[in-house]
Design a protein around this nucleic acid. Structure first.
Lengths: 202, 202
DNA sequence: GTCTATACCCAGATAGAC
DNA sequence: GTCTATCTGGGTATAGAC
């Protein structure tokens, strides 16, 4: 019957660990954060933490998955018009520029997870496949209205947009004068017959 | 007076270590390779290796620097016309698709090195600044001949091209069906008034 | 100048007590 | 569900042989 201040029943400790892990991962990166660090900050011992998440990787995946779920809740863009979806991607680029930690985490992990034996590889394969399909569908939707520039292939266009978002993050992390939003918006507009405008937001 | 089979004078051991390290880094990644692994494969003890390269990071930087030097020797494109430089970037994308290990290494490291306290951060900052300037100059050269599409800014175009090359590598590493060359060429051509052709190679 | 042997410390993970 | 103790492996520093 736990009833003390920090570890009440019902997965409260689990949530506390996740919060703490997300904070520290964002501050110092995945490699720069030890399980002991997270446990100490959360007020338990490392084996105590590893009872809830058997490995550090498992903890990481839980952090990422939860973040995905929060994002889907806060930015519901499923089933919206293609131009709105594209505009939301530009909005994401702007939003990302406010949280260096999480950008660093994703940029580092998505590269690290490309290793054939990396535990998070499948997660990112699935994530990228879904993201590419999502953007491709948005471009195809725009194409249906004749809004795509000549010779633009939705599938290639989606690859370009996703790659651009990833690559620009690295440049921005290395030099914060980099304007991710401007470079992304310029490219997306080059794929369209008419540029995005404020009317496309929401 | 060393004169045995593997460690002759004049930095031969150093070269052997670099070769071995490049191979193992490419096979198992930076994190997946221990200094002991490299030393064992090179036929010396780890402290023996650390005599030549004081830290694992130093060894890594030496590998990268040497790779840069080899690249500059094999692909001399300094001072060439802008369109030739752009074509060579497409060639690089094609060439990269033949060596997964080195792509993985650069993709992982460039992301990892964005951390504020990472020893390779300055190296990558310098490298990216030079690369961006290089591509920007190529685009500016094309613009001088009126070969740039309307509204294309050489500086932003350079950011996009470099970001695209980086981001496409991640997608290709996660799904080798990704056609890096096609996506990059399509984007570069969209920046130009006339597409690149075989005539631009060399 | 070139290397081996040894030791230190930190990190992830496991075993078993409470 | 959480702890203490311990194992293993990796990066690094030092001592000293040749």
């Amino acid at each position: 019957m736990p009833q003390d201040g920090r570890a009440a029943r019902g997965g409260a400790t689990r949530e506390l660990i996740l919060d703490t892990a997300m904070t520290l991962f964002a501050e110092a990166g995945y490699r720069g954060t030890s399980v002991r660090d997270i446990a100490a900050r959360a007020g338990i011992s490392h084996p105590g933490l590893l009872y809830h998440f058997p490995t550090k990787e498992a903890l990481l995946m839980a952090v990422l998955t939860r973040r995905d779920a929060l994002g889907a809740r806060d930015f519901p863009i499923e089933g919206r018009p293609g131009r709105v979806v594209l505009a939301s991607l530009v909005g994401t680029a702007r939003f990302n520029a406010t949280d260096r930690g999480i950008v660093e985490l994703y940029a580092t992990l998505s590269a690290e997870a490309t290793a054939a034996d990396h535990p998070a590889r499948e997660y990112f394969q699935t994530r990228y496949a879904a993201l590419l399909a999502f953007v491709r569908d948005a471009l195809a939707d725009v194409a249906n209205d004749g809004g795509l520039a000549d010779g633009v292939d939705p599938s290639i266009g989606a690859q370009q947009i996703v790659a651009l978002m990833d690559g620009l993050q690295v440049q921005w992390l290395l030099d914060d004068a980099t304007d991710m939003e401007a470079a992304l918006a310029a490219h997306i507009n080059s794929l369209l017959t008419a540029p995005l405008s404020a009317a496309d937001h929401s």
